[in-house]
Nucleic acid binder design. Structure first.
Length: 886
RNA sequence: GGGCGGUUAGCUCAGUUGGUUAGAGCGUCUGGUUUACACCCAGAAGGCCAUAGGUUCGAAUCCUAUACCGCCCACCA
């Protein structure tokens, strides 16, 4: 056995993953006696490719899953993909246009287009699956789900029908966010607003002057609105009518007073277009006399009402219209510097044109949901589970954001006018407007029933994700089973739901997290998860969003895996990444963690070499009665790390846990223990024990390299991924001797550097210490690692005048020099130390003298403070003694 | 307009109910082939913890303002 001196991740990763997968360890058992730990993986777009957002979520979730699995949980991590309705339909339509030369793919008809999309998805789904594997994700592929699976479709339909029966789903004419480009409406959350500079026009409108940035909507305006208290317009009463010369001749207009108008803005009065503006729509609803009229069609072209402008694209019409009004003498002024927010669709980036349309909605205010025995509205349930701490959000501050969103939440529009998605389970006798409507999974008996052409918002099906994935697909084929039956008869649902952690980006807390809470509490009467862990977004070194269009700053995770290995990428995404905060990522950082995996590789290579030399064939047993101070030290440190890292991972301090292990391996194990154990002092049993546990502790973070090294550990027959989490050895290890040794070595090294004693050169050193024997035990190590050629250790002695001097832990160290040392500076330093310590002790005694603190603080804290106090007092005494010796 | 975050070393970031001399990685500088590792080892320099007040024996940490940066939400035509 001889391993290469550099770890090349590429050579090993794929084979290791295959072995894990084939071993069946990813597969969770619903019959197991172990407690369950479940994560539902946020499903990436089925047709997508892996990006850094996926990489970070996979790294975090895999760490948690592997840790809990080692801790003895029945760990289930369910993978899956999302059908991403609008996005996918667009991609395929675009493809058909560009590649197949089909001008209007929708003319193929619904069934054909949906088939094309299905085919495309099936063909590209493997890409993302394999990319998830390359990250090392230990998810249960046997349970993989797709949001368009038959079984999930059954759940979607069941919920829709149940919600309809409960009166939570209704159909109505509302103003919606219409995207003329994609020919569908989108939910409020999917609308983005961007600033745009546009001319702001003021027109004469009868006796009034009205302002608008959108003259092309004004054709049918017959209502002028102003604030009821506006003094300027007090002569005009609500309901007054007047004649006005307008775009296409004279019209009769009506005055309406409404508080929605801001008197400070523009002229303080405006005309309204309820069909194409949400504010205007609201005003209309308050005044019966207003009627809405459609001006712009669903393709973004002007309708008949526009007269000579009919059929024109709105952008084109605007200029011509302004010109016409100008010619008629109705244009009062133009403000070219006006800036306003325009609405765009966050999906396709097309402009949003508000339209009135009949749509399906979920009522969030109706109090018909039974939760904990009380009838509540969906909103109230969503608030309750967070208020009552049934669900914990990390970081906590996002609870505020969540509540704020709920306060402003309006009914959720769930229908979409696209073809790709779960179809609405509603049937009409003749046409959509017919009164003969049936809500149900199957069409009713008889001829002439047509299904609603609309599909459901993607988030409707995603919202069921934590549990729809756990329903037994076989059961869903039986139409006689009710929703409750399906839940009660599915072993996975019983064992693994509610899930434990929902780990996702904070950017989809509304889209997804909130909706999962809404739908899951309604459907299952359970919470979907008990902890929400929100990671931040990955940004470039400059703090900008990474965009694919800019390859300079955009990092492709697959390139990084190829170059540095999945382990290095995982580590770099996790360390320094705190929940809720964005993180900047750049190649050097990943490279740094590649160096870390290599460090582990080489340290292991060294240790394995020792085993080979000693002919070790199986795991040795430590002889606790014959341990060197260094052995005691590293065993003590290891015990501490086992506890700390476990606590950190349990409490979701993933970054801290990673850093903790990073420094344990590099600083403690490599830089001190391995160095100290070169030579005679080597203890293979301790080396084995510590390395073994390091591999286990690091495995959740860097699973590949640890597994590969593990395969070379003598006597280990089972893979590392199967190992239980280590326990402390239950022994007390005194670490003082080695800590002193390290401090002495560091001090000597540092003094040498300060005094320009060449590193290669050896020098004599004199040490005064109370416990001479303890230091003499480590004499060899000190001499070797600090390059000392003559070491004198004595209980005490005269001050050495011509020497570099230092005091660590009460041990005085001198390197005799030709130059003089500044004794005065040393004295001043000590005096300062003593001053500081006295303050420190005073403060601590004050705290401990405070009854409130002693009573209320946890016992460990009080004990900790007491320990600190006595430690401080000891040190103070030492320093005082030293000062008196001057 | 409302809300939330950030401001700590040249860069990217930690900093856990306030506690001795504020940490890490990268970068920089100096020196180094010593039984693994140059993807390495040893050492050094570098911080008025954004600013101004306050509470406290003691503040990066708690409070109050201010400034700059970022994000989210909101119907100003």
């Amino acid at each position: 056995m001889s391993l290469p001196s550099a770890y090349e991740a590429k050579k090993y990763e794929d084979a290791i993953y295959k072995k894990w997968e084939e071993s069946g360890i990813f597969k969770a058992d619903a019959d197991s006696n172990k407690p369950a730990f479940t994560i539902a993986m946020p499903p990436p777009n089925a047709t997508g490719v892996l990006h850094l957002g996926h990489a970070v979520m996979l790294a975090l979730q895999d760490i948690l899953t592997r840790h809990r699995r080692m801790k003895g949980f029945e760990a289930l991590w369910i993978p899956g993909t999302d059908h991403a309705a609008i996005a996918t339909e667009n991609v395929v339509i675009k493809k058909l246009k560009d590649e197949e030369g089909i001008k209007e793919p929708r003319e193929m008809g619904r069934d054909k287009l949906v088939d094309c999309i299905k085919e495309y998805v099936a063909g590209s789904q493997d890409t993302i699956r394999n990319q998830i594997r390359r990250m090392g994700a230990s998810c249960d592929w046997s349970r993989e789900k797709y949001t368009m699976d038959e079984s999930l479709n059954r759940m979607v339909n069941e919920i829709f029908v149940n919600m309809y029966k409960d009166g939570l789903i209704y159909r109505g004419h509302r103003i919606v966010n219409w995207d003329p480009n994609l020919k569908t409406n989108v939910s409020d959350d999917e609308v983005e607003r961007v600033e745009e500079k546009a001319p702001f026009y003021t027109f004469q409108y009868g006796p009034f002057q009205i302002g608008t940035a959108r003259p092309e909507t004004k054709f049918g305006d017959k209502i002028v609105v102003m604030h009821p208290d506006d003094e300027r317009y007090k002569d005009y009463k609500h309901g007054d009518t007047f004649e006005a010369e307008w775009i296409n001749g004279t019209i009769t207009a009506t005055v309406i007073k409404d508080k929605a108008v801001d008197p400070e803005f523009g002229t303080g009065c405006m005309t309204i277009t309820p069909w194409h503006d949400a504010t205007d729509f609201d005003i209309m609803q308050r005044h019966e006399e207003i009627e809405a009229e459609q001006i712009i069609d669903f393709d973004g072209k002007l309708l008949k009402i526009a007269g000579e402008f009919a059929g024109m694209d709105i952008k084109e019409a605007r200029e011509k219209l302004v010109q016409k009004l100008d010619e008629k003498g109705l244009l009062v002024s133009v403000d070219e510097n006006y800036v306003h927010n325009i609405a765009i669709n966050s999906r396709g980036k097309g402009m949003i044109e508000p339209q009135i349309k009949e749509q399906w909605f979920i009522d969030v205010n109706k109090k018909v949901v039974e939760w904990k025995g009380v009838k509540m509205s969906l909103k109230e349930v969503m608030q309750d589970v967070i208020n009552k701490k049934d669900i914990k959000i990390i970081p906590e501050r996002f609870e505020k954001t969540y509540f704020h969103w709920i306060d402003n939440l309006r009914d959720w529009c769930i229908s979409r006018q696209i073809w790709w998605g779960h179809r609405i389970p509603v049937w009409y006798k003749e046409d959509k407007d017919s009164m003969d409507m049936h809500v149900g999974i199957e069409a009713p008996e008889g001829k002439g029933w047509e299904q609603d052409p609309d599909t459901l918002d993607t988030w409707f099906s995603s919202a069921l994700w934590t549990w729809s994935t756990l329903i037994d697909p076989e059961l869903t084929k039986d139409p006689s089973l009710s929703m409750e039956d399906l839940l009660e008869k599915s072993p996975d649902f019983i064992k693994f739901h509610p899930t434990h952690v929902m780990e996702t980006g904070y950017d989809i807390i509304f889209f997804w997290v909130a909706r999962m809470i809404l739908m899951t509490t309604y459907a299952t009467k359970e919470i979907p998860f008990d902890t929400v862990y929100l990671h931040g977004l990955i940004r470039t070194r400059e703090g900008k969003k990474m965009s694919k269009s800019d390859p300079e700053t955009c990092i492709d995770p697959l390139d990084m895996i190829n170059e540095y290995g999945a382990d290095a990428l995982r580590m770099s995404m996790v360390i320094g990444n705190t929940p809720g905060n964005d993180m900047r990522l750049y190649e050097e950082k990943i490279k740094g963690y590649r160096n870390f995996t290599n460090k582990l590789w080489n340290a292991s290579r060294f240790v394995l070499g020792i085993f080979e030399e000693k002919g070790l064939k199986e795991e040795p047993i430590i002889d606790y009665d014959n341990l060197s101070p260094a052995d005691e030290w590293i065993l003590g440190k290891l015990n501490a790390k086992i506890e700390e890292v476990d606590k950190q991972l349990t409490e979701f301090n993933i970054s801290d846990a990673g850093q903790n292990m990073y420094s344990f391996l590099w600083d403690d194990f490599c830089d001190w223990y391995l160095e100290l154990s070169k030579g005679e002092a080597q203890n293979p049993a301790v080396l084995y024990y510590v390395l073994k546990n390091i591999l286990i502790l690091l495995h959740p973070f860097i699973p590949f390299v640890t597994e590969e090294i593990w395969a070379n550990m003598p006597g280990q027959t089972e893979m590392l991924i199967h190992q239980p989490y280590p326990e402390v050895d239950g022994k007390k290890h005194s670490q003082e001797a080695t800590e002193n040794t390290i401090a002495i070595i560091k001090s000597i090294r540092s003094m040498r550097a300060e005094n320009n004693i060449e590193p290669a050169k050896k020098a004599p050193v004199i040490i005064y210490a109370k416990d001479v024997d303890a230091i003499k035990k480590n004499e060899a190590e000190i001499m070797k690692m600090a390059r000392v050629d003559k070491l004198t250790v004595e209980k005490s002695g005269d001050k050495i005048k011509n020497a570099a001097a230092d005091v660590v832990n009460g041990i005085e160290i001198f390197i005799p020099l030709d130059d003089l040392v500044d004794l005065e500076a040393e004295k001043a330093r000590l005096e300062k130390e003593i001053g500081n310590l006295e303050g420190y002790i005073k403060g601590l005694s004050g705290k401990l003298g405070n009854d409130n603190f002693v009573k209320n603080a946890p016992k460990e804290v009080v004990d900790g403070e007491k320990a600190k106090l006595s430690e401080g007092e000891e040190k103070l005494a030492k320093f005082k003694e030293q000062l008196s010796s001057f």
